[in-house]
């Protein structure tokens, strides 16, 4: 403490509690997050490289990656389209029930994933409310990869809406009015004026929805059917490995998923910084 107090920064500090708050933050972060997470990497070092590579590239895991990342991408893309429309409607139009819908957008955040899972599975089962309408048309949702997609759309729904909404609210009307009065069509105004403003927010929402979907477990397993090679997602495969007491195998797959999550997290941070720069630049 003594050597820190000679620090130049400390001399200017009026607010107390630097050591206490930073110390407690680092201690708690280390204890709850960093030490436990490091266990995943350290456990993997006990495997040989060949064994690790064999585990994370086996046929069944590869099929689960394809499903998890494919369905997550598609779900995030669908959420960009419909979430974007929803944000647009909520910001720009007046209609009855608007505040109610605005509040309900966060339902997938608040509803426990297991509840979402059993509800979607029941709705889309062949005798469920929606399954009854879709199965005669030859569309099977429950217990197929399409079910995985439906669950991932549900849990990713709020992300795009909540990132695009504030940017649309802040967007300057003057630019749009100028474009329209200079003779641009609505379509041109959207593509040339509005879209560039909301693009960073749309991409952030997409990345957030995608990142959430890749790790999702609770809402998917009930509706997926969980057939190996067909409708088995990677998080479920980790559980299967754990239930067979293959801790090393589960951990190896966890490392792959963690590295992908870290890359996504850094991408999201960069995108959010870009969004903020865009917004502040617009105001000056």
């Amino acid at each position: 403490m003594a050597f820190l107090s000679k620090n130049r920064a400390k001399a200017r500090r009026v607010i107390p509690g630097f050591h206490l708050s930073v110390g407690f933050t680092l201690f708690y972060l280390g204890l709850i997050v960093l030490i436990p997470l490091s266990a995943v990497f350290i456990k993997t070092f006990t495997m040989t490289w060949e064994a690790f590579w064999h585990t994370v590239t086996s046929e069944r895991v590869m099929a689960s990656y394809r499903l998890t990342f494919g369905a997550s991408l598609l779900a995030a893309f669908i959420n960009v389209i419909f979430g974007g429309i929803l944000a647009w409607v909520l910001v720009r139009y007046k209609f009855p029930g608007k505040r109610l819908i605005d509040a309900f957008v966060d339902l997938p955040f608040a509803l426990p994933t297991a509840v979402a899972g059993i509800t979607l599975a029941t709705l889309y089962a062949p005798n469920g409310w929606l399954g009854k309408l879709l199965v005669p048309l030859g569309i099977k949702v429950a217990y197929t990869p399409l079910g995985v997609l439906v669950a991932l759309i549900f849990i990713g729904l709020p992300f795009v809406v909540r990132t695009v909404q504030p940017v649309l609210e802040e967007a300057e009307k003057e630019l749009e009015e100028a474009a329209i009065s200079l003779g641009a069509s609505h379509c041109q105004t959207f593509v040339r004026v509005i879209f560039p403003t909301i693009l960073p927010a749309v991409l952030t929402g997409f990345a957030l929805a995608f990142a959430r979907a890749t790790g999702e477990y609770g809402s998917v397993i009930f509706i997926a059917g969980n057939m190996p090679m067909i409708s088995e997602i990677t998080p479920l495969f980790m559980i299967t490995k754990l239930e067979q007491y293959d801790y090393a195998g589960a951990t190896a797959i966890a490392v792959v998923m963690l590295i992908i999550s870290f890359i996504l997290l850094l991408t999201i941070n960069a995108l959010q910084a870009w969004t903020r720069r865009r917004q502040t630049a617009g105001r000056e």
Binding site: T25, L26, L29, V33, L34, P36, L37, A39, V40, K43, T113, A211, T214, G215, E216, Y217, G218, P235, L236, M238, I239, L242, Y247, A250, T251, A254, M257, L258, S261, F262, L264, L265, L266, I268, N269
Partner: peptide, 27 residues
């Protein structure tokens, strides 16, 4: 530090459970 605080959000729930199995499990 800010990024590290966000970490648990980006980790799959299954991995969040797995880490405690690795720490406190029989092996």
């Amino acid at each position: 530090l800010l990024t590290l605080i966000d970490l648990p959000f980006s980790v799959s729930p299954v991995i969040s459970g797995l880490i405690y199995v690795l720490l406190f499990g029989a092996q």
